[in-house]
Amino acid sequence: MTEQSAPHISFPRVLVLGLCPGKPGEPPFRIVEIDGQVVGEATSITDVLETAAMHGITIHDLDDPEVVRWVGGGKFRWKLH
């Protein structure tokens, strides 16, 4: 009988939550968490990279689930549809 190994569940340090509409006249944003703590808002990929860098995290690959997790849309979701 072949045993299946348990799937690997990653716990990335950076978590980017779903898009929030923001206040009238302001762009939509996404909440950024690092190590389980809310650290700010991002309106672009650049904001995510800068926020991570301010906390000592260098992101080389935005698609690496070991480093960053995109919740409620991928890295290109920055506008309400």
Rank of each mutant, 00 (worst) to 15 (best):
P65I: 14
I31C: 03
S10F: 15
R77T: 08
P7A: 07
G25R: 05
T2E: 14
V38Y: 12
I9G: 13
P7C: 05
T58A: 14
D61Y: 10
H60W: 08
I34P: 00
H60N: 13
D47I: 01
I31G: 00
G22S: 06
H60A: 08
S5Y: 13
P24F: 14
S10P: 13
D47M: 03
A52H: 01
V71P: 03
F29Q: 04
P12Y: 04
G36R: 05
K23P: 10
V32G: 00
E33N: 10
E3N: 12
P27A: 11
E41Q: 14
D64V: 09
R77C: 04
V16Q: 01
F29D: 01
L62K: 04
G56E: 04
P27S: 11
C20W: 12
V48Q: 01
P21T: 06
P65F: 13
I9W: 14
V67L: 07
W70V: 03
M1H: 13
E50N: 11
R30V: 06
V14H: 01
L49Y: 00
D63L: 09
R77A: 06
E50D: 11
Q37W: 10
A53C: 03
R13H: 13
A52S: 07
E50K: 08
L80K: 07
L15H: 09
T2A: 10
P7I: 06
P7S: 06
G40P: 02
V16M: 02
G73C: 07
G56W: 07
E33G: 04
P27I: 04
I9M: 15
T58F: 14
T58E: 15
S44Q: 06
E41S: 14
G18F: 10
G18H: 07
F76D: 15
P28W: 02
T46Y: 07
T58C: 15
P28N: 08
R13M: 12
I34T: 03
P27E: 10
F11K: 07
S44R: 05
T43G: 08
D63Y: 12
V38D: 11
H81R: 13
R69I: 12
T2C: 07
M54Y: 15
K75G: 05
G36L: 09
I59G: 02
K79T: 15
K79N: 14
D35C: 05
